[in-house]
Design a protein around this nucleic acid. Structure first.
Length: 845
RNA sequence: GCGAGGGUGGCGGAACUGGCAGACGCGCUAGAUUUAGGAUCUAGUGGGUAAACCCCGUGGGGGUUCGAAUCCCCCCUCUCGCACCA
């Protein structure tokens, strides 16, 4: 629109021919890529493979510029690798099971399948318009029976291996989504999806035994050299390995052992009480032992009930008040036979360790606070060197290193040594041993929701829990009408679904009505892409072993723990089962930054989304892409500014004008490939600058994806080239070389315009089948060096010399420089520092 | 509280292993062209200053160095992750 107006004053014939008509040329080239099969992977190719994977999206509806940035970053890599001669595999699919579709069904009465496919169509259209290149022949949809059949197969494999199991446990419950959640899906005590407070429920649920793999998931992080440190650190912390000892206390007079985990066996002599989590099972026996109506019984019951009902937020809030109650029982400290009180305390977590902790107030801050609050004894067993801590006057726990005191035969040992010694001592009597504990808990995969893969399990009165045989998969998700958020899973209300025959005995049986967490779907999808239509197996091991690990994975940091940990786990399981050869699915991981607007992440719920449509309409896709890549380094968050998009557009338009206006005279000429030295001055400058920029852009892309500086370098070059008007044959060759190089260098970023420019310059269409440009090594050297002259580190003058000028010669020239002489006046030269090719610093007094 | 990453013009951001701070772009100012413009072109644009080749400037303070945005120490601040993990 603007262009037509802007071009008003240009004669119409030239205008039509030379206008940057992006709305015409962009679809033209997208069609060309599709028809030429540019992004279709080559089945048999001698070329080296490159599996470039971007995290497949949840089909939420329409995508905004923040999403566009993610996919464009991936597309740059794909196009660059193509030009580098790789056999690139770049698939795309849909993580299409999940709650929003079901909520839409409840609210708007649209069936989830319909809602989902509508969104997929809209998003696919956007991805196509953005020019992001995928091999659409391998598209997958997680909610399709041909996919979730194999998600169910993965479940069965884990079940066979004993890695999928059902247990009753206190689990996270989101009342608003009316489903349980994995630990990873609870953020600050709130549901990851809907932000409502999560409560605890004692339910029987399906779990994947990820804890069996805790150590390997931790160890193998070391192999992931090309993962961001930040992500590896987050996983390390989440796995949360602690070394220590398991120590067995005995309940006095009951002969009931009460093991507890501690990282500080060196403080065992200082244990002055013991604390149980309110959920600890032994508490029931205490309550049962007390007569009905006993006030102590009521007191304990009340305390336990209250603590159990506290939401995770209340219980885990920083500085939450510590509360507890004495059980009336005592336990015996195995190391010194001390009789200490057994308490129930709200700060003890059932999920970690054994749900019982030995409390050492002198050396643990939590225990200290608790002890002071309830008047429990404090005993110092470690004294820091040169200090004497007094248990009566200390203001906080001492957690540092020191020497053992009040610790029997261990007195005098440094506490670091006592750790091992005391553990050994316990081991002798079988009262304790070395132990490792992890924060990681098993992955809760049951969801009481409809829009997910049904768990392929049948319950038979006779045979018990029976897995659905592989040849009966998929357990099809039935079409249902009633999504109301009443109690239980919607599937549980479908009699036709629930009632079935036992696969083993053929008798009456009931189906499992929970579906799987959608993270199960996404934990193996990168394997399915390689044989998406195979109806005989989940994936082809041979093919998968050739293509995996993924060479480049690209996605948001928000998946640093959830998806990336689960995928690593499932890969290891499949490895152990002999299905794949590799143990880590993703060799390189790139986590891109978010687009921020008005200080917040761009999102529908924040109401700060910028849609791509209006920008594309006004400036074209290439301008949008250019801006998204130019906005900053791709791994960093970036603030969106509407008006800045125009900068990229102006640049492209100017570049276009230059190419279009010279296309005719350049068509027949060869690009310059001769010797730099033989070029006349102005052409030589352009030629050298072009070669330098080829080198620079290549380095920026290869290194750490500094697309912003790569683009800046081409802009800078063009600012020179734009002024260059060729007068003779040689200068036309040089101009052609320069314009062609720029088209090649920019093509991964702004592919449409580059294809068009490439063709206009008289080349065969298909710039991505061309090689990435190389540079003339003899032409990247500067002809003249500018030497900075400093006095005491301050720039005072400059010198232009040829690169072969000797160091002494430069020093002499520096001292002769007029401006320098002025500064030297009356001062004494102490020394002269010279940095070759860069500067001379004269130190004076 | 613990851990990680940031803080550079009006804005987004450049600055390779310490060596010209502010590339490139947005915006802004002046001029040209234009009846109009989210159009185009030219010049300028960190602050001080009439102006500069002068002085000051990379969150603050100290240090190392001929020379520090960059290295060291202390502090402030923002973002993210974890958070009573025994």
């Amino acid at each position: 629109m603007i262009l037509c107006l802007a071009a008003d004053r240009v004669p119409p014939n030239i205008m039509r021919k030379n206008a940057y008509n992006f709305s015409e040329l962009e679809p033209k080239w997208r069609k060309y890529w599709e028809e030429s099969g540019l992004f279709r992977v080559q089945a048999d190719s001698a070329k080296q493979k490159f599996y470039c994977l971007v995290m497949f999206p949840y089909p939420s509806g329409t995508l905004h510029v923040g999403h566009a940035r993610n996919y464009v970053i991936g597309d740059v890599v794909v196009r660059y690798k193509l030009m580098r001669g790789f056999n690139v595999f770049s698939p795309m699919g849909w993580d299409s099971f999940g709650l929003p579709a079901e909520n839409a069904a409840i609210k708007e009465k649209i069936p989830p399948a319909e809602y989902t496919s509508k969104n997929i169509a809209a998003m696919k259209e956007q991805l196509l318009v953005w020019g992001t290149g995928y091999d659409w022949t391998s598209e997958i949809t997680a909610s399709g029976p041909d996919y979730y059949k194999w998600t169910q197969w993965v479940f069965l494999k884990l079940y066979e291996k004993g890695l999928a199991y059902k247990k009753k446990a206190f689990v996270n419950w989101c009342p608003s989504c009316s489903t349980v959640l994995a630990n990873e899906q609870v953020l600050e005590g709130r549901c990851e999806r809907c932000d409502n407070a999560v409560t605890q429920k004692d339910l029987e649920q399906w779990f994947f035994k990820i804890t069996d793999y805790a150590q390997r998931l931790l160890d193998d992080l070391q192999q992931l050299e090309h993962w961001p440190e930040r992500v590896k650190l987050m996983q390390r912390n989440w796995i949360g390995r602690s070394e220590g000892a398991m120590v067995e206390f005995m309940i006095e007079g009951k002969d009931i052992p009460l093991p507890c985990f501690t990282t500080r066996p060196d403080t065992l002599f200082g244990a002055t009480f013991m604390a149980l989590a309110p959920e600890h099972p032994v508490i029931e026996t205490f309550i049962d032992a007390l007569a009905e109506g006993d006030p102590k019984r009521d007191e304990i019951l009340e305390f336990v009930e209250k603590a159990r009902n506290e939401s995770i937020i209340e219980r885990s809030a920083a500085g939450a008040p510590k509360e507890g109650i004495f059980t009336g029982h005592y336990v015996i400290n195995p190391v010194n036979n001390d009789r200490v009180q057994l308490w129930i305390a709200n700060y003890v977590l059932m999920e970690y360790g054994t749900g019982a902790v030995m409390s050492v107030p002198a050396h643990d801050q939590r225990d200290f606070e608790f002890a002071r609050q309830y008047g429990l004894p404090v005993r110092v067993v470690i004294q820091p060197e040169g200090e004497a801590i007094d248990p009566d006057t200390m203001k906080e726990a001492f957690t540092g290193d020191g020497v053992q005191v009040n610790s029997g035969q261990f007195d005098g040992l440094p506490n670091s040594e006592a750790k091992g010694e005391i553990t050994k001592y316990l081991k002798k009597d079988n009262r304790g041993e070395r132990s490792v504990n992890y924060k990681l808990r098993d992955w809760l995969i049951s969801r009481q929701r409809y829009w997910g893969a049904p768990i392929p399990i049948v319950y038979c009165e006779k045979c018990g829990t029976v897995p659905v045989p592989e040849d009966e998969l998929p357990v099809v998700l039935p079409d249902i009408k009633n999504f109301g958020s009443a109690k239980g899973s919607p599937l549980a209300r479908e009699e036709n679904f629930v009632n079935t025959k036992c696969p083993k005995c053929g008798g009456e049986a009931r189906r499992e009505t929970d579906t799987m967490d959608t993270f199960v779907d996404s934990s193996w999808y990168y394997l399915r892409y390689l044989s998406p239509r195979d109806d005989k197996r989940a994936f082809d091991s041979g093919v998968v072993n050739r293509w995996l690990p993924v060479d480049q994975y690209i996605g948001g940091v928000e998946h640093a723990i959830l998806h990336l940990l689960y995928s690593r786990f499932i890969t290891k399981v499949l490895h152990d089962l002999g299905f794949v050869d590799f143990q880590e699915p993703f060799q390189n991981l790139f986590t891109q930054g978010m687009i921020i607007k008005g200080g917040a992440k761009m999102s529908k719920s924040k109401g700060n989304v910028v849609s791509t449509e209006s920008i594309i309409e006004r400036y074209g896709v290439d301008s949008l892409r250019l801006y998204l890549l130019f906005i900053g380094p791709p791994e960093r968050d970036a603030e969106w500014t509407d008006r800045s998009v125009v900068g990229g557009f102006r640049f492209l338009k100017r570049l276009w004008q230059k190419v279009a206006s010279h296309a005719d005279e350049l068509k027949g000429v060869k690009r310059w490939e001769g010797d730099v030295g033989s070029l006349p001055d102005d052409s030589r400058g352009i030629y050298r600058a072009t070669n330098r920029v080829i080198k620079e852009v290549t380095k920026d892309i290869e290194g750490s994806w500094h697309f912003n500086t790569a683009i800046a370098a081409v802009m800078e070059l063009f600012n020179e080239v734009e002024k260059f008007e060729p007068g003779d044959a040689v200068s036309r060759q040089v101009l052609r070389h320069s314009l062609e190089s720029m088209a090649l260098l920019l093509s991964p970023f702004v592919p449409h315009i580059c294809e068009e420019m490439w063709e206009r310059l008289g080349n065969e269409p298909g710039i991505f089948e061309r090689e990435w440009p190389s540079y003339d090594h003899g032409a990247v050297e500067e002809e003249q060096l500018e030497i900075v002259l400093q006095i005491n580190g301050k720039v005072r003058s400059r010198l232009t010399v040829s690169p072969d000028t000797g160091e002494d010669e430069i020093k002499a020239m520096a001292l002769e420089d007029e401006k320098i002489k002025g500064f030297l006046n009356g001062k004494k030269v102490v020394k002269i520092i010279s940095v070759p090719r860069k500067l001379v610093n004269i130190v004076v007094k």
